[in-house]
Design a protein around this nucleic acid. Structure first.
Length: 235
DNA sequence: GCGACAG
DNA sequence: ATCTTGTCGC
């Protein structure tokens, strides 16, 4: 019997619904983040992402399960639910996590590691969506963002694999990583149960011919309904 | 007080 | 995130 992932009752505890209350909860959950590699095996990786329909009134969350060796998708799930909150910088997880947890719970097996579109600890309160997802689900997570939310960094080299630290308030909170030659870098930060040093390595291990690592890329395509048409063929 | 600001 | 066609460059 495959072990299903069980979504927690609420990723927000007894949140009062206000932005101020959300920040109090973020501080509390941030204390539970583990920045050490803690996954005995690594065979199944998942990618999760969110898109919107109906002018934003409907939230679509996608979860894709892949074999970490072949990077081939083993299962894909999509869930739709009414959007509950607007986008507020710093509070992204409060808008997207409910749908993401449901999509994850639909997967036939529990992943050993989850790639999340957005920041891990590279966040004003060290609790970006990847870190939040990790703490409430208990799963190891990594944040892979396309833009910086907070932090600064030294100039980055132009070649694939080049990387520099992302520093925020004197702390290294992530890595600015060039996943392919001459493309805009990815912002990688640990979410939960993954170390700062290993996060970029795990991301590079999942990169094929595109800028985004496969878990994130496939989830992104599904959530943004860009699947089924276009795209280069293998060869 | 003035910007900056993941998706 | 999303609205949107063709186009420039590797």
């Amino acid at each position: 019997m495959p072990a299903p992932f069980v979504a927690p009752d609420s990723p927000f505890g007894d949140w009062d619904g206000t932005p101020a209350g959300a920040r109090l909860l973020q501080r509390e959950l941030a204390r539970q983040v583990l920045l050490q590699d803690d996954f005995p095996v690594l065979r199944l990786v998942a990618g999760v992402d969110v898109g919107f329909e109906e002018a934003g009134h409907v939230t679509r969350a996608a979860a894709v399960l892949l074999d970490v060796e072949t990077l081939e998708p083993l299962a894909e799930r999509l869930v739709r639910m009414p959007t509950s909150m607007p986008y507020i910088p710093g509070l992204l997880s409060f808008r997207e996590l409910p749908a993401v947890l449901h999509a994850l719970a639909e997967l036939p097996q529990v992943p050993d590691l989850v790639f999340c579109d957005g920041q891990g600890i590279a966040h004003p309160l060290r609790l970006g969506i990847a870190a939040h997802l990790g703490v409430v689900s208990g799963l190891p997570t990594i944040g892979v963002a396309k833009k910086i939310l907070v932090g600064t960094h030294a100039e980055l080299g132009p070649r694939q694999g080049d990387q520099v630290d992302l520093v925020y308030r004197g702390d290294v909170v992530g890595t600015v990583l060039r996943s392919k030659d001459r493309v805009r870098p990815l912002i990688v930060s640990p979410g939960h149960r993954v170390s700062l040093a290993n996060a970029p390595r795990l991301v590079m291990a999942c990169v094929t011919r595109y800028r985004l690592p496969e878990p994130t890329r496939l989830a992104d395509r599904l959530a943004s309904r860009r699947v089924g048409r276009g795209g280069p063929q293998p060869g």
